[in-house]
Simulated scan of single mutants.
Amino acid sequence: MSRVMLLDSASLYFRAFYGVPDTVTAPDGMPVNAVRGFSDMVATLITRYRPTDFVACLDYDWRPAFRVALLPSYKAHRVEYTTGAGTPDVEQVPDLLEPQVPILLAVLKAAGLCAVGAEGFEADDVIATLAHRYGGRGIEVDVVSGDRDLIDLATDKVRVLYTGKGLSNMVIFTPEEVQAQYGIPAGHYADFAMLRGDPSDGLPGVAGIGAKTAAAVVAKFGTIENIVAAAQSGDPKMGGPVRSKIMASLDYLAVAPAVVRGRTDVPVDELQTAIPAKPADPEMLAALGERFGIANSMERLTTALAQVAG
Rank of each mutant, 00 (worst) to 15 (best):
M1Y: 09
M1D: 09
R3P: 03
V4K: 08
L7E: 08
D8F: 07
S9I: 06
S9Y: 11
S11K: 06
S11V: 10
Y13S: 03
F14T: 04
R15D: 04
G19V: 10
V20Q: 08
V20F: 11
P21T: 14
D22P: 10
V24W: 02
T25Y: 08
V32G: 00
N33C: 03
M41W: 08
V42F: 02
V42T: 03
T44G: 09
T44I: 05
T47A: 15
T47M: 12
R50K: 15
P51S: 02
T52R: 10
D53C: 08
V55I: 14
V55N: 04
C57W: 03
C57Q: 03
D61I: 10
R67A: 03
R67T: 09
A69I: 09
L70Y: 08
S73P: 11
A76S: 14
Y81H: 13
T83M: 15
G84Y: 01
G84D: 03
D95G: 13
L96N: 09
E98V: 10
E98G: 05
P99I: 01
P102R: 03
I103A: 01
L104C: 07
L104M: 15
V107H: 02
V107W: 01
L108M: 14
K109V: 07
K109F: 06
A115T: 11
G117W: 05
E119G: 10
E119K: 12
E119F: 04
F121Q: 15
F121K: 13
E122H: 11
D124M: 08
D124F: 12
D124L: 12
V126P: 11
I127A: 01
A128L: 05
A128V: 04
A128G: 12
T129G: 07
H132Y: 12
Y134D: 06
G135L: 04
R137A: 14
V141E: 02
V144H: 11
V144D: 10
L150Q: 05
L150A: 00
I151Y: 02
T155F: 00
T155N: 00
D156F: 01
Y162V: 08
T163E: 07
K165Q: 14
S168C: 05
S168Q: 13
M170W: 03
I172S: 09
F173A: 01
E176I: 01
V178R: 00
H188A: 00
Y189H: 14
A193H: 10
M194H: 04
M194Y: 05
L195W: 12
R196C: 09
D201C: 11
G205H: 14
A207N: 11
G208E: 13
A211E: 14
T213Y: 03
T213A: 15
A216Y: 06
A216L: 10
V218H: 02
T223S: 15
I224M: 15
I224H: 13
A229G: 09
A231R: 06
S233H: 07
D235A: 01
M238L: 14
G239Q: 07
V242H: 04
I246L: 14
L253S: 02
A254T: 15
P257Y: 07
A258E: 11
R261F: 09
G262Y: 06
V268C: 12
E270M: 05
L271T: 04
T273S: 11
A274P: 04
P279L: 00
P282R: 00
P282S: 00
M284R: 14
E290T: 15
F292M: 12
G293P: 14
I294H: 02
N296K: 13
M298I: 04
R300N: 15
T302E: 10
T303V: 14
A304R: 07
L305W: 00
Q307R: 13
A309H: 12
